[in-house]
Lab assay of single mutants.
Amino acid sequence: KWTITVQGEEAIKWAIKVAEARNLDYTVHIDGDQAHITIE
C-alpha cells in the first residue's frame, strides 16, 4: 500500500487515469489543489 501526493488538476486527472488503467484499487483524498492517492 502506498500513497502519492499530486498537485494541480491536470496531475490529479493523470494519476487517476494511471490507477484506473492499471486496474488498481485506490482512494483519493482531495485537499485544496492537492490530492493524496492511496493505492492498495
Rank of each mutant, 00 (worst) to 15 (best):
A15S: 02
I16H: 01
E9I: 13
I39R: 01
D33F: 07
V28A: 03
T38Y: 08
W2F: 10
T27M: 06
E9M: 12
A35P: 03
T27H: 05
A35Q: 04
W2G: 03
A11F: 10
D33Y: 06
I16E: 04
I37G: 00
I12N: 01
R22E: 08
A11N: 13
Q7K: 12
K17A: 15
G32A: 06
G8R: 02
A15T: 04
K17P: 00
I12K: 03
K13G: 03
A35R: 05
I12T: 03
E10W: 12
I30D: 02
E10I: 11
H36P: 00
D25Q: 14
K1D: 06
V28M: 08
Q34L: 14
E40W: 15
A19F: 13
I37P: 00
H29R: 13
V6W: 02
A21L: 11
Y26M: 04
T5E: 03
V18E: 13
G8E: 02
V28N: 00
I39T: 02
I37D: 02
G32F: 05
E9W: 13
T3F: 10
Y26V: 06
T27W: 08
H36D: 04
D25E: 11
R22V: 11
V28E: 01
W2P: 03
I37Q: 00
Y26P: 00
K13A: 09
A11K: 11
W2H: 07
Y26N: 00
I37T: 00
Q7E: 10
T5M: 09
R22G: 10
E40K: 13
I37S: 01
G32D: 05
I30F: 13
E20S: 10
Q7H: 12
T27L: 05
I37K: 00
W14Q: 14
I16D: 02
K17F: 10
E40N: 14
K1Q: 10
A11T: 06
Q34V: 15
V28S: 01
K17V: 08
Y26L: 03
H36G: 03
E40T: 14
A11Y: 08
E9L: 11
Y26I: 11
T27N: 05
V6S: 01
I4E: 02
Q7I: 13
D31S: 11
E10S: 08
A21I: 08
H36N: 05
H29V: 15
Q34N: 09
T38E: 05
Y26E: 00
T38D: 03
I37F: 12
K13D: 06
K13Q: 10
L24N: 03
W14H: 13
H36Q: 10
V18N: 05
I37E: 00
A21E: 12
N23S: 08
I30K: 06
W14S: 11
D31R: 07
T5I: 14
A19E: 01
V18F: 15
A35T: 07
E10Y: 08
N23F: 08
G8L: 05
Q34R: 14
E9P: 10
D25P: 14
H29M: 12
I12P: 03
E10F: 12
L24H: 04
G32I: 06
T38M: 06
T27D: 04
E10K: 08
A11H: 05
T3S: 06
D33T: 09
T3P: 02
E20G: 05
L24K: 04
A11L: 12
D31M: 12
Q7S: 12
